[in-house]
Design a binder for these strands. Structure first.
Lengths: 160, 160
DNA sequence: CACAATTCAATTGCGCACAACTGAATGGGC
DNA sequence: GCCCATTCAGTTGTGCGCAATTGAATTGTG
């Protein structure tokens, strides 16, 4: 069984083969991520949330309230992404942002009553996503485990 | 072994547990995809390419020339993404776009000599990426296989 | 206390992803 | 031959992702 269905016609030796393998893995990751995004898009449409906004609400539903910094650490996002996103969530009446009294630099994000109510509607989402993924739980667990390891390695290689 | 390190404090029953599991899997996918993006960003910087542009060049290096439509099918991207991207690649002198003679609707994208030369510099990229991923080949194969299955399922569930 | 370095959130700029739409070219049914 | 539906690429608008910068608040050091 070959990975691409045809032999490379371009020169380059071993590295050219790696180019193909490389394409398969990273492209697969990218494609899977966007495929999930598509399913989430339709599932979250009725809630008026995008997938990143949904992730933020998930964390807030768990923790209640926390500063932007910690939100970013949990979600692996920086203020450049979170600031406008949180602004939109605030405009939608789902969260409030207020400066911390004991540290005027940080902004505490917390859910509004409407934001907490939204959780009821979100409860049915994961089951639909898992059904669409169509993989047995063991495979999903294995997938999550592999992804976690690869992410940790990549972060170590990049960030320092 | 628990997945999150703490039990949920919020109400919701089974669905609440699924919410957590769901967060782990899809968030892991998202995070891994962006972690790869970070490594590619630095590796491709010297070539003046972004990761999606690199994917386009990979396909063109393999196939030489093909219409935007087929490029989009290979990469799972539509014209809304490809048109401006190809415009930038053309502005960089790496590809040319020309209307097909036998079908004036379609645009054929092909590499320029400079675009083909760039392949030499790209040959070293995959090895660095694979090294940064730090997973044995068997695990990478398993990962790719799982991702392929989940993507196929999700596409079938979404697109029809 | 003063001053430099650090830590925050926010902003700017650029590129990708996707939905919705436009407009030209094509092809099938009549 | 003439429409009408379809197939293309391109454009517009919105939102994410990230680098780089800004500016205010805080902390550490002398």
């Amino acid at each position: 069984m070959t990975w691409h269905g045809e032999t490379p016609r371009t020169p380059g030796g071993e590295d050219a083969d790696l180019l193909l393998l490389d394409q398969q893995i990273c492209f697969s990751l990218n494609a899977a991520s966007r495929a999930f995004g598509g399913v989430y898009r339709t599932a979250l449409k009725e809630l008026g949330l995008t997938y990143p906004q949904y992730l933020v609400m998930l964390v807030l539903w768990e923790d209640g309230a926390l500063p932007v910094k910690q939100l970013g650490e949990r979600l692996r996002l920086d203020s450049g992404t979170l600031s406008p996103l949180l602004k939109r969530l605030e405009a939608a009446g789902l969260v409030v942002r207020e400066r911390s009294p004991e540290d005027e630099r940080s902004v505490i994000v917390s859910t509004t009553p409407a934001g907490r109510e939204l959780r009821e509607g979100a409860l049915s989402v994961p089951r639909r996503i898992l059904a669409a993924a169509g993989l047995p739980l063991d495979d999903l667990r294995a997938l999550r485990e592999l992804l976690g390891r690869v992410t940790a390695n990549l972060d170590a290689a990049t960030g320092a």
